[in-house]
C-alpha cells in the first residue's frame, strides 16, 4: 500500500470528519490530491461508510443492546450468506458475523427495552427455518466500541518542559 494512502486511511479511521485541508497538512499533499485520493477510495469500496459513535445514554436514550448467538442448519444450495442476508435486513440488527466454534452466527441487536429485544429475537430470528437455537446475552455496559473508549481516562501529567 502507498504510504500516503495508509496515512489518509488512518486519519479517517480515527476522525471521519477530517477535512481534505486538514489531511493535506498532515500528509504533505495538496487538498485537491487528498480529495481525489479519497474519492477513489470511496469508489473502490475501500472506504465503506462514515459513521459517528454516540453515547446515547448521555441524552437519556437508554437503548438496550444484546449479543445473540445462533446455531443454524444449512439447506441445500444455501450458504451462510442467505441466512445472513435475511437477518441483516432487520434494522434492529446492528452487526452480523459468521463465527468459528460452538455457534455459527453472532448478532448485535439494539432495542428500546429488554422486552423489545426479547420479542424481536423470539418472533423474527428464532422462527427462521434455518435457526436451530439462539442464546441472547444482554449488554450491561459498553467500555470500548470500535476502538473508542467510552469514558474519559484520567489525564497523565507530564512536565511542561523537558530536554
Amino acid at each position: 500500500m502507498d504510504e500516503k494512502i495508509r496515512h489518509i486511511l488512518e486519519i479517517l479511521e480515527n476522525d471521519a470528519r477530517a477535512s481534505p485541508d486538514e489531511i493535506a497538512a498532515l500528509t504533505d499533499m495538496t487538498a485537491q490530491e487528498v480529495s481525489q485520493a479519497i474519492a477513489k477510495l470511496e469508489e473502490t469500496g475501500v472506504i465503506r461508510h462514515y459513521k459517528t459513535i454516540i453515547d446515547w445514554d448521555l441524552v437519556g436514550e437508554n437503548y438496550v443492546y444484546a449479543v445473540i448467538e445462533l446455531k443454524v442448519t444449512l439447506e441445500r444450495n444455501q450458504g451462510y450468506q442467505v441466512i445472513a442476508e435475511r437477518i441483516y435486513k432487520f434494522p434492529e440488527v446492528r452487526s452480523v458475523r459468521l463465527l468459528s466454534g460452538d455457534y455459527d452466527i453472532s448478532l448485535t441487536v439494539r432495542g428500546k427495552s429488554m422486552k423489545d429485544v426479547a420479542f424481536f429475537v423470539a418472533e423474527k430470528i428464532a422462527t427462521l427455518d434455518q435457526v436451530q437455537n439462539t442464546a441472547t446475552h444482554f449488554v450491561l455496559k459498553t467500555y470500548k466500541e470500535d476502538g473508542v473508549i467510552l469514558h474519559e481516562p484520567e489525564a497523565i501529567k507530564r512536565l511542561p518542559v523537558s530536554l
Binding site: 507530564r158 512536565l159 511542561p160 518542559v161 523537558s162 530536554l163
Partner: peptide, 17 residues
C-alpha cells in the same frame, strides 16, 4: 521551569518525550 509554573492554559511544545 520557573516561568512556566503557575501559568494556566499553557500549550507545551517544550517536552522532550
Amino acid at each position: 521551569f520557573d516561568l512556566v509554573s503557575g501559568l494556566e492554559d499553557v500549550i507545551s511544545l517544550g517536552v522532550g518525550e
